[in-house]
Design a protein around this nucleic acid. Structure first.
Lengths: 161, 161
DNA sequence: CTAATGTCTACTGATCCTATAGAGTATTAG
DNA sequence: CTAATACTCTATAGGATCAGTAGACATTAG
């Protein structure tokens, strides 16, 4: 399970990418139903990692620093929740050998979870905030068409993208 | 990250599958370096879920109830660590709607993590304890041959299985 | 100056993780 | 029958993490 914090981070980044402009922490918090002070911590963390820029004072706010099509879900998840890998001995950002296993090439558990990690990274490191939004608006558009014109097959096809 | 408890569970199940016989909790604990009383809780839990059988008293011990090729990593992980899904609204064993998201078909986050979940389940629900062992012993055999006969390419090929 | 906004640090209650402890029950060798 | 052995069940506890909350401080526009 990903943390609540990570979900908030994704909601905030998606809101910022949609707005394509700077937003106040309060605006994001209200719009996405996120506790304001908690959100500020998250935004600050994303800023420290170069994903956001911010401006203080009266005309302050947060905006994307990297373009939305360069911000992957994996990158955000690693910042907010830590390693994506299911085992410490499979982590790239926080490698640690498993103390209770022998040599790694002999570990059956590691071998299985290496495949899990690879599969997860394949999605997380290739999908960006921009992808999530674009597929989303496409779907919403089609969804409206669908309700008017009754073409559920197309919707289902697109949902498989 | 999977819990220490889950790692212990896998180690214990692999030991039992290898032994192909009943083992004492103490034997497993010693052999796999697992705190005995902690291991007993885990084994008991696996028993309650129909994976192990046990016998008390002087000739007691634990043994697999299901055959090793029917015990998937996913099943064990769900027993010990709970849901495999990265979001409550994607769990099959513990579905709960995300309180902060709107309608599920519109949620960009859910859509991305649905793919992550599917990829992870694809590995976890198809790989059994028997698979882990058989690939493992195959590898070990080849590894010995390799060190004697210098055929690292074959080893690498098999490691990709 | 002052009002609005981001920055930083500290704190807290709840829950989970990783065990540890011990009393109780079943089984059987002798 | 008894002692020894091994699983069964419940309780407890220290530490870490999670999900916020709070408040003092810094920066900016007007």
């Amino acid at each position: 399970m990903i943390s609540q914090k990570a979900k908030y981070a994704f909601h905030a980044l998606i809101a910022l990418a949609r707005a394509d402009d700077t937003l106040l922490a309060r605006e994001i918090a209200d719009q996405e139903n996120i506790p304001r002070k908690f959100l500020e911590q998250i935004l600050l963390d994303l800023k420290r990692h170069g994903i956001l820029q911010s401006r203080r004072g009266r005309t302050g706010g947060y905006a994307l620093l990297e373009p939305a099509n360069r911000i992957t879900f994996g990158k955000v998840l690693r910042i907010v929740d830590g390693p994506v890998a299911p085992l410490p001995c499979l982590s790239r950002i926080a490698y640690r050998p498993c103390p209770d296993c022998g040599p790694e090439e002999d570990c059956e558990i590691r071998r299985v979870f290496a495949k899990v990690a690879e599969a997860a990274r394949d999605v997380l490191d290739r999908t960006t905030i921009a992808d999530a939004i674009s597929v989303d608006s496409l779907l919403k558009t089609v969804s409206r068409l669908e309700s008017a014109e009754s073409n559920p097959a197309l919707v289902r096809t697109l949902q498989g993208i």
